[in-house]
């Protein structure tokens, strides 16, 4: 197993830092899956996570100038799965703010480590290099099955969210009123955030939101045909989990698609040129 990647372009370094920051805000431990083409950050759907799951993938060619990896074996298992504390990685690459280059490689110290080497600009001829060793655990191939891309649920409604900043602000206020929030929407572009407690009920409504185009040939999936377009699908979720997602993201996607499976789950899809991030929040029963 070998892995080695290098970024030189400062914009790519910043971009990568933003992705890692976003992920570290969402979860503590995450799994990194490396393939020839792509890098994945995965939080599998486990009871311990409260049912939240995340799937983020980036094309390595868009970020890395050098990228070499050899998986467990060359033919069918040419992949690497690692488990890492996301915050450690986030802290390690924090100093890459104005770096000349950023190298990430898999090394064997006493334990397997992801070594982050950052070359900083220096005035003298000797290079200034910051090195971080982040312990990782290698996930054996027998467990890889748990880390497959989550299946897109059969959602009832799919729409584009209003600007995240607006939504974030509203959710922050609603969080002070209640710890659960009901998110609802229909296929005609109406969307609502609602809290209800003994003392207060507050509903924020948006209308005429964009409906994501459905491409029958592409990956995107059509909302369930049986669901009437004007019918609201709703899901009651934990406000904290939603806020974590809204407050933590630094990717600045140009579109955020929200898919609602009535009374079951919410699925967010951040759409960006080089990255796609999916986040699932299950409903909380009343």
């Amino acid at each position: 197993m070998r892995f080695r990647a290098k970024v030189v372009n400062i914009d790519c370094i910043h971009h990568f830092t933003n992705v890692v920051n976003t992920i570290s805000k969402l979860l503590k431990k995450c799994s990194i899956r490396l393939t020839k083409e792509k890098m994945f950050f995965i939080l599998p759907d486990q009871v311990a996570n409260g049912g939240v799951s995340m799937w983020c993938e980036l094309k390595q060619a868009n970020f890395f100038d050098e990228y070499r990896m050899d998986g467990v074996n060359e033919y069918e298992l040419n992949e690497i799965y690692l488990e890492i504390v996301a915050e450690n990685l986030c802290r390690a690459i924090k100093s890459a703010n104005n770096a000349k280059s950023l190298k990430i490689k898999l090394t064997k110290k006493q334990v397997p480590c992801l070594t982050v080497e950052i070359e900083l600009p220096s005035l003298s001829s000797t290079a200034r290099i910051v090195t971080h060793d982040i312990p990782v655990s290698v996930i054996p191939s027998s467990l890889w099955g748990e880390y497959q891309e989550p299946e897109m649920p059969d959602f009832h409604v799919s729409l584009c969210l209003p600007p995240l900043k607006t939504v974030k602000h509203i959710v922050e206020r609603l969080k002070n009123l209640s710890s659960y929030l009901t998110l609802s929407g229909n296929q005609e572009g109406d969307f609502a955030l609602k809290v209800e407690t003994e003392l207060v009920s507050a509903t924020t409504r948006f209308s005429d939101l964009e409906i994501p185009p459905y491409d029958p040939d592409g990956d995107s999936q059509a909302p369930s045909k049986l669901w009437p377009p004007s019918e609201m699908a709703s899901a009651r979720i934990d406000v904290k989990k939603l806020l974590q997602f809204l407050a933590g993201q630094q990717i600045n996607p140009y579109k955020v698609i929200c898919n609602i499976v009535d009374q079951s789950a919410v699925h967010f899809f951040l759409v960006h040129d080089d990255i796609s991030l999916q986040y699932f929040i299950p409903v909380v029963a009343v």
Partner: peptide, 11 residues
Amino acid sequence: EDGAVTDCSIR
């Protein structure tokens, strides 16, 4: 505000 409407009903 900006086309978004919030209704609140406070006991």
